[in-house]
């Protein structure tokens, strides 16, 4: 980036955040819903970007964590817990399950890891679908209420969006701090060269587990927002296809780039909406567009900036 670009970075970022925070006042409720969904996916995508983009692991199971977070939130809301407890609980449970999923990652690498995480996602789907006493089975869980915090009701679409967006910004700041800390450097070392990392005292075991667990915890928070957003959760929202969609978000945006998931989520959440002019054809167009986009820029949208920099 040029000097001018660099000095403009902060003002542009702050303006973008303000604009996104007040945007819903000019949108209809469906627009606000889509925008909130975008923010939820950005959170889950940031987590996956840590696992995949920064720590160099492969995960095809992020939707399972979104599901675990959502079901945890749904169940706790039914039991009357405060939302102040629900969000940390969803995050912690996903953190622990993520640790568990990290263990196969220590044994298997690359494509095997892709399969292991994919199998994990399918297993979670089966549990969501079959354990009716807990999850409501295929019928799912209905009427999950919007949260109440300190006596403030977030039931209006715009209010709930602002809550979600606020949490997204806080989590983004935390992620940025994590990536700037020595941990961020250790994740990159793990991704770039695990053998060298071990030889300079960086425990690949510890950081692999952490990359999975923190990535999962982000999806857990996303799930805890997803449940009250849609008000109704069912197993079909947490399939492998959704995990692939989240991976798509990270890759299309640009893996290992901070704003990759935010941009990628625009493509995954909004592009299908914009393509509605194509009526029935839109999913077909969407699918082939992904192929073309990958072939044209395998490094993601944000890699285009690099291409212009160094022609």
């Amino acid at each position: 980036m040029t000097g001018l670009g660099k000095s403009l970075r902060w003002p542009v970022l702050i303006l973008a955040i303000i604009a996104l925070a007040v945007l819903p006042t000019s949108l209809k409720s469906y627009g606000v819903y889509i925008l909130t969904l975008w923010a939820v996916y950005v959170i889950a995508g940031m987590g996956l970007n840590l696992t995949v983009g920064y720590a160099g692991q492969i995960s095809l199971g992020q939707a399972a964590f979104l599901g675990i977070g959502a079901y945890t939130a749904g169940l706790m809301a039914k039991l009357g817990f405060s939302y102040l407890l629900i969000v940390p609980a969803s995050a912690s449970i996903c953190f622990l399950v993520g640790l568990g999923l990290g263990f196969p990652a220590l044994r298997v690498q690359h494509h095997y890891l892709a399969f292991a995480t994919l199998g994990f996602n399918m297993l979670c789907f089966l549990v969501f679908r079959n354990e009716e006493w807990l999850t409501g089975g295929t019928f799912g869980m209905n009427d999950i209420a919007r949260p109440v915090l300190f006596g403030w009701h977030f039931s209006r679409a715009a209010d709930f969006y602002q809550l979600t967006f606020g949490i997204t910004v806080v989590l983004a700041v935390l992620m940025a701090l994590l990536l700037r800390s020595p941990w961020g450097r250790a994740f990159a070392a793990l991704r770039d060269n695990p053998i060298r990392a071990e030889s300079v005292g960086i425990s690949t075991t510890f950081y692999t587990l952490m990359a999975f667990a923190i990535g999962a915890a982000y999806a857990g928070v996303a799930g805890a927002l997803f449940a009250p957003l849609v008000g109704f959760i069912e197993p079909a929202s947490f399939t492998v296809t959704n995990s692939l969609a989240m991976l798509l978000m990270v890759i299309v945006g640009g893996q290992g780039r901070f704003f990759g998931p935010a941009l990628g989520a625009v493509i995954v959440v909004l592009l299908p909406e914009w393509l509605r002019f194509a009526a029935d054809w839109y999913l077909a167009v969407f699918g082939f567009m992904i192929v073309v986009m990958m072939v044209w820029m395998p490094g993601g949208l944000l890699s285009l900036a690099d291409r212009w920099k160094r022609p």
């Binding site: 892709a114 890759i251 029935d280 999913l283 077909a284 082939f288 992904i290 192929v291 986009m293 990958m294």
Partner: peptide, 22 residues
């Protein structure tokens, strides 16, 4: 591995829905 996984996923969505509408 990953870009190809994504691209074949795109093909899968594309083929399926092309067949559905066409």
């Amino acid at each position: 591995v990953i870009p190809l996984v994504i691209a074949t996923l795109g093909l899968s969505i594309g083929f399926k829905n092309l067949t559905r509408v066409a």
